[in-house]
Design a binder for these strands. Sequence first.
DNA 1: AGTCATTGCACCATCGATTGTGCAAAAAAG
DNA 2: CTTTTTTGCACAATCGATGGTGCAATGACT
Lengths: 354, 354
Amino acid sequence: MTEVGKKKATIYDLSVLSGSSPSTVSAVLNGSWRKRRIKEATAKLIQDLADQHGYTANLQARGLRSSRSGLVGLLLPVYDNRYFSSMAQTFEALVRSRGQCPVVVSACRDPEEERQVVETLISYSIDELFIAGATDPDGVHAVCEKAGLRHVNIDLPGTKAPSVISDNFEGARMLTEAIIEHARKDGPVAPEEIYLFGGRNDHASRERIRGFRAVKRSMLGADPEACIQPTGYSPAMTARAFEAFYQAHGKLPRAFFVNSSINLEGLLRFLAQHPHETFADIIVGCYDYDPFGSFLPFPVFMIRQDSEAMIAKGLAILEAKREPAATHLVQPMLVPPRTALSGPLDTLKDVDDG
Amino acid sequence: MTEVGKKKATIYDLSVLSGSSPSTVSAVLNGSWRKRRIKEATAKLIQDLADQHGYTANLQARGLRSSRSGLVGLLLPVYDNRYFSSMAQTFEALVRSRGQCPVVVSACRDPEEERQVVETLISYSIDELFIAGATDPDGVHAVCEKAGLRHVNIDLPGTKAPSVISDNFEGARMLTEAIIEHARKDGPVAPEEIYLFGGRNDHASRERIRGFRAVKRSMLGADPEACIQPTGYSPAMTARAFEAFYQAHGKLPRAFFVNSSINLEGLLRFLAQHPHETFADIIVGCYDYDPFGSFLPFPVFMIRQDSEAMIAKGLAILEAKREPAATHLVQPMLVPPRTALSGPLDTLKDVDDG
DNA sequence: AGTCATTGCACCATCGATTGTGCAAAAAAG
DNA sequence: CTTTTTTGCACAATCGATGGTGCAATGACT
């Protein structure tokens, strides 16, 4: 019985205890015993012994032998924002419900780091990999390909592997429309009054910018180049862009589109430097949903990307095994200001342990 | 070289190619070759071959043989809030900088799940484990103990293993003081006007409640029992508590302490059901920092827990190896309203890939 | 009773690395 | 030119599990 300090029991220990051979013990404990025609009584004996001694398989040994580990990886750029952390949360739940073991790692948007991290995961013989928001999906693809590792891209598409991404164009359209319509409640809107901050030269940003510009052209008749302010994915850079705009114009744009919640943090940094009241009348659209962001003191329209659907679709693709390098679009959702959506945490039971 | 589709190279492949024995190859590739008196020229030859063929060690095999894996685990209750996701972010960075491989998993505050997840980690021979916010730290401790796994508790203390936690009492004191002082700007404050929402019967909640009550007693002369509204860690329950209060009193308390950012999301859900203007004058203290939470349309004082210091201290404790089951306190920090702190993401470089 | 099929399990090679041990060849010492 | 020491490496056992193969015992059937 679970003696403290002792080494963990192995199939050899149980083999001695039960009088069966190690292979029999192994078969019983990994469930393949019916296939191997082990007597029910023998199986039960071994099972009981295993329970008594708190046996758990050494998964490294199993993985080494079978060259499968039961691990499913999720490669994230960063943890520290609601979009990716809630993706991690759903990923864990979905993978665990399939009896596999989720492993989440982040690579800080560094292409080299991305490849290295994936190499490491491969060294642990992970079975499948979700590549979310990779800066260089095709680079990662090459590494996976070489090792024969099944993988899908999430959020940012690659050209060599199947991808599941948000419909960024459509999301940007909805978002841009929403802020322009909202702005029109206070009178006519000129194209020069609507800006976009954030983003860089990745697929998601390009699509969002395209959607933004398309709507501006159709609703406002023009979309001046100057209204696009790419700042990369960095709060500090974004704050600087707002500051620069403010220095030049004495105010922020009447309404603007922020490329991600990370960039929206840049807006906060800017706001912190300036008096509260000055900006009560701005209208913001943010491509990403954050519950607290939704309740800022000015209207914030947000886009909630359906990471659950993306992960689920990714799992389905991996399961299907036929993997044309197609790109699947998942529809995001427009969230009006002051909206508190429920998230993955709401499915948790919250026991009080008295 | 790196031929696509081929199986990964092993030390045996390199042994044939180089004309050396597998053990020599192994020694060269894992760095122990000087100790084993391998000629520099031999080492270089093998190294070059390894590079050419893109050799990477099979870490499961290594782990099996040496019963150490290079993995360091972090067990989290949930990912989906800024406190824990930023903890994960720092954890990754710190562990990686020590040449080990971080593995983050969540257990949804379910004691049984916690133990199971840890069992799984143990089956992969992880070397060390950080147990953050565990509902049942001592239960997890027992599992670790049995397997001889070094571990520390973070955020919620256990009695059997060393723990590193926030000074919740002091944090709660600061926070309560801050909201009372802020409230006093609008006139005298009665004890019945200051509430606490959220928390359950865990060490952190108890300490925070203790700090809250101590300050109320010393600043306001009393702290009525009715002002403590424990709701567990669930947005939905918290929202219900606010709603109940509102139904009973026709308004929210003048100022209140919210036990965590998760509970603060409950406040959002309540707010979403009610007109904006009604609550412009509330004053909130939230035990946890969230950048967007800090800019809500009413004053929100927040407590930023120093998860970086906690992780660092935890690493130091594990490194020291002498592990009395002492509890180390880390000072948290009071964050005034409308403050955008920088986080772990700010250390990232943000390259634009043109 | 003899043949054949089925049941129930043991044996053993294998996955890819690590590490203690031993032994030639080369170098140093005498 | 021996003897001793050092250098450089090969050998083989081992970590814990898996799965193909083979063989004895049992039961079914003619």
